[in-house]
Design a protein around this nucleic acid. Structure first.
Lengths: 202, 202
DNA sequence: ACCTGAACACCGTTCAAGT
DNA sequence: ACCTGAACACCGTTCAAGT
């Protein structure tokens, strides 16, 4: 009987949750959410579609896990700012850039509210908002305002907007088409920070 | 009880885009986004799945059209406030209540950024922000901050959050579980309005 | 012009059979 | 214990055939 050597099995690594999530991220980056199918994924992993279910419960868990992996890396990389405001700005910009590089993450997080990846961000923001001295009754509203703004701004593209029939959008049209997304995003964060500064402390 | 005539089960009205959108809204309200299938829809309309394509290009257009119908009704009902701030608050609360009654609308709008329903809201907000005297360079950031906050807050449910491992979420936990969503939402809007009031005028 | 509904090309998920 | 891959129960969409 002819057998292959131990050194060269079919795959170098066996299937694992991490390898599946990494392959899913690759597929999502390459062709978006509709490019993530279990058939394409299993082909990339050189296995059958059923094998994935030994490590992940299903597609929605896989999408959440992929989004969580991106968020986790981003939060781990952030440098601590000198002030809570600076930390919030750094955190927000880090997420902006991460979701800019992986546009599917916004939708992935939006579909799993109150789950791990979103709670991670909430937690980081919350600690800074506390450090800023926002009174307890206003903390939740402040954090959700920041969180919504970060997640939603970043997930939204305005490129295909045609401002013809709308006076406001029309008047601001040129700025709209030529605007620096990143700067606008930061202006929104600063707007919310200004609101916090104008509110009473605890 | 209404009984069908045995001789003529024929529909009173012929199929139309409006009837299809209304039926889709009914399906979405009853069983969410995954309940909207062309087969269930065509059964409700007493026709075949192919007939729908004579009036609507496909599923994503149908979902956008359903969301747009809700937004259009909501914006049409809003009473004009006495001040721009009051109008913004009324607009935001109207959308809050509409999306609370039709939870699928948030996701529907998020999937069609820069298209008609979102532009409608943008336009209404933009006119009020102009009336408030926000300087031109800050108008876009202000409107998108409001827009993101409204759309995202409303689309997000925090019910299943378990705050055990997260000090911020844990400290605020009781408030979180018992909080009045509507009041919190309004507090966030006021936070952004406060930021606008604290910024320089044009 | 509009409707019908079977057919097509997928999809997520399952599961008996293998190793 | 993990993998295989055919099979199942769907799905959005198309289209020849009807009215």
């Amino acid at each position: 009987m002819v057998k292959k050597s131990h050194a060269s099995p079919r795959r170098e690594d066996s299937l694992s949750r991490d390898r599946i999530v990494d392959a899913a991220i690759g597929l999502l980056d390459a062709s978006g959410e509709e490019g993530l199918t279990f058939r394409a994924l299993s082909e990339r992993l050189a296995t059958g579609p059923g094998a994935i279910y030994n490590h992940i419960a299903g597609k929605s868990e896989l999408l959440t896990a992929a989004g969580d992996a991106i968020v986790e890396r981003t939060l781990a990389q952030r440098a601590a700012g000198t002030t809570p405001q600076a930390t919030i700005r750094a955190l927000a910009l880090g997420l902006f850039d991460a979701i800019d590089a992986h546009p599917w993450v916004g939708a992935a997080l939006a579909r799993a509210p109150g789950q791990l990846p979103v709670v991670r961000i909430l937690e980081c923001l919350g600690q800074q908002v506390r450090a800023l001295g926002v009174r307890e009754a206003a903390q939740w509203a402040t954090v959700t305002a920041l969180l919504s703004y970060i997640l939603d701004s970043v997930a939204t593209t305005w490129a295909q907007l045609d401002p013809r029939d709308f006076p406001f959008a029309c008047g601001i049209g040129a700025q709209l088409r030529a605007h620096d997304d990143r700067a606008d995003f930061l202006a929104g964060i600063d707007l919310i920070l200004a609101g916090m500064a104008a509110s009473p402390r605890r």
